[in-house]
Design a protein around this nucleic acid. Structure first.
Lengths: 337, 337
DNA sequence: AAGGGTTGTCGAAGCGCTTCAACAAGTGGT
DNA sequence: ACCACTTGTTGAAGCGCTTCGACAACCCTT
């Protein structure tokens, strides 16, 4: 391996000069810089990450802690992860992938060993066991998701309360008076991940304001589960003309079931989904949806965490405003036509 | 931060002794070990990763290079990534997440900087630009997928040729004589990722042997694309009674379309999918499928790469045997009943 | 009782980089 | 012509760990 010392010798300067060319922390004459850069290229030099981390106590790595689960919002997780990796590279950092499984212990390990300069946590629960550690570890950290008490922390998330509200508004404007919500799997509510609850609260609050009758039911992502949930919904509220679906795995089953029952979308019933845009346009009916801006969430998380690495302080809660895109799955309520 | 020197002082031994307790590379008396471990616990010591990497020239990190794409086999990628992360931890290593986007440059960077001891590459193309670098970088590397020339490399993958063969066999045994294959999106074949081609070859070869007429059509993962592909298939081969689906995003659309056309599964047509088991059981009909053993692939990749880190040499091509699970989507061909 | 092995511990030399204090050389104000 | 700066460069001191050779202390052999 080529070392900095060899580059220095080759360029006829001292090691510190090479280091300053690399970091830009001191001014270097154009001529010297040129010569050093030339040597670096010729020798194919790459700074040793370990040595750099040791000397500077900065690893240029950020850790991303991801849920170890493949049964739920996989596309969203994946997109966030890739956005994090891409954005981190743009800030000259790399990403260390941790699984949620390790829990608080991973936080301790990564912080303690200086493996990463900062952390991004996904799948944050309302009362997450990792939070106390983060708060007093004093390492930069950003949560994707919002815990019950976000004080002293930095969080990014889609504004799910507003998302819920937006969905009802859209349906209410189209004249729908009976709306059913196909929520996430019951397990999601039980884990108290927050976003599902906030969506539900947003839906309920706005529905009450607008005089819309709302029925909220959790639902697993399989066809069979959706079939059961749908029949129970229609039993209880036969007049339902609007659906809001949060569990993206339930979308295809729902559309398929509605078609089977001879209910046309959007003529007879309207469907609004909360899902990544890509999912919305691939469905059998192009779905009116509120996008989950996974890429944006990952990108902002990195930007916020980088700001903290650079020394910025203070807590911060960044809620991304939801955007609803009307596509082919929603239309005027039958009664209102 | 607590350092090894402080632990040594606290335990009343030298720094090297602490180091040997940690690494187990020299024998240490039970009494001393005990005392040192006690001090480590009391002080909450974590070895500094940078210093360790510098001194030992081993980072205990393996890099995972993942395609930057969210339109294709997402669940498989995700499951592989999580399996890699989990297995790596079991070997006391961490995982650095790289995106395919950076290409060969990332290989050079990671190898050159000693950021990672080894690499695992996904989404390997037949003539991948990263391979020459890997071959002479001399760092341990494992490919998930198989390039045109795997010499000097270690590869793991599902045996897609055998997978194709297995699908046809299953349908042939049930008496199907006209089988249509819904392949991956055309772009996948154009990128020459290998697995799609190998599956097709396996299907064709076995079909020829068994006297099955085979129609292979690439297909995007959207409902609209599937609708088009299906109608073209049925135009061309109205007698088609068996389907093999490789593009998992096309599965739900296909089932939905068949139902709409009044073709019952499995009474009128049989469907065999090539997809993760989880997808197979969540569909509207529990699908007969050949599983893509994503977890196993990730796990084996790590095990193989760890063996190389430990010094094992030689090339190796590990093909995981496909397993077909008969579920509710395949049955005797109508003519044969 | 002497020699030859083990076993357990230690001191010191680095690993390759960053960064600080120091200094040489040039710049401009007076 | 002098001082006070600014600019560009350097040497040396670590950062916290691993690892090698050395060495004491003990155990068997003979």
């Amino acid at each position: 391996m080529v070392t900095l010392a060899e580059v220095a010798r080759h360029a006829g300067v001292s090691a510190s000069t090479v280091s300053y060319v690399l970091s830009g922390k001191r001014s270097i004459s154009a001529a010297t810089r040129e010569r050093v850069e030339q040597s670096i290229r010729e020798l194919g030099y790459h700074p040793n990450a370990g040595a750099r981390a040791l000397a500077s106590s900065r690893s240029n790595v950020i850790a991303l802690m991801m849920p170890l689960r493949t049964d739920m919002y996989v596309p969203v997780m994946m997109e966030i992860a890739l956005a994090v990796a891409t954005t981190a590279r743009a800030h000259d950092h790399d990403v260390l992938l941790l699984t949620g499984e390790e829990g608080p212990e991973a936080v301790r390990r990564v912080v303690g060993s200086g493996l990463a300069d900062a952390m991004i946590l996904m799948d944050v629960e309302l009362d997450d066991a990792r939070l106390p550690l983060l708060r007093d570890a004093g390492r930069p950290a950003v949560l994707i998701g919002i815990p019950a008490d976000p004080s002293g922390l930095t969080c990014v998330d889609l504004d799910f309360t507003a998302t819920g509200a937006l969905c009802v508004e859209h349906l209410a404007e189209l004249g729908h008076r009976d709306v059913a919500v196909v929520g996430e799997a019951a397990a999601v509510y039980e884990r108290h991940t927050g976003f599902a609850e906030r969506t539900r609260d947003g839906l309920r609050a706005r529905a009450a304001e607008l005089g819309v009758r709302l029925l909220h039911r959790p639902c697993e992502g399989s066809y069979a589960a959706m079939a059961g949930t749908l029949s129970r919904i229609l039993d209880e509220r036969p007049g339902t003309t609007g659906f809001v679906v949060q569990n993206e795995a339930a979308i295809d089953p729902l559309l398929s079931l509605l078609r089977q029952q001879g209910r046309a979308v959007p003529e007879d019933v309207s469907v609004v989904a909360i899902c990544p845009d890509q999912v919305a346009v691939q469905a059998s009916v192009r779905l009116t949806s509120v996008a989950i801006p996974a890429h944006e969430m990952g990108r902002r998380a990195v930007e916020l965490v980088m700001a903290r690495v650079r020394g910025e302080r203070g807590e911060r809660l960044e809620l991304l405003p939801p955007r609803l895109t009307a596509r082919a799955s929603s239309g005027p309520a039958p009664a209102a036509r």
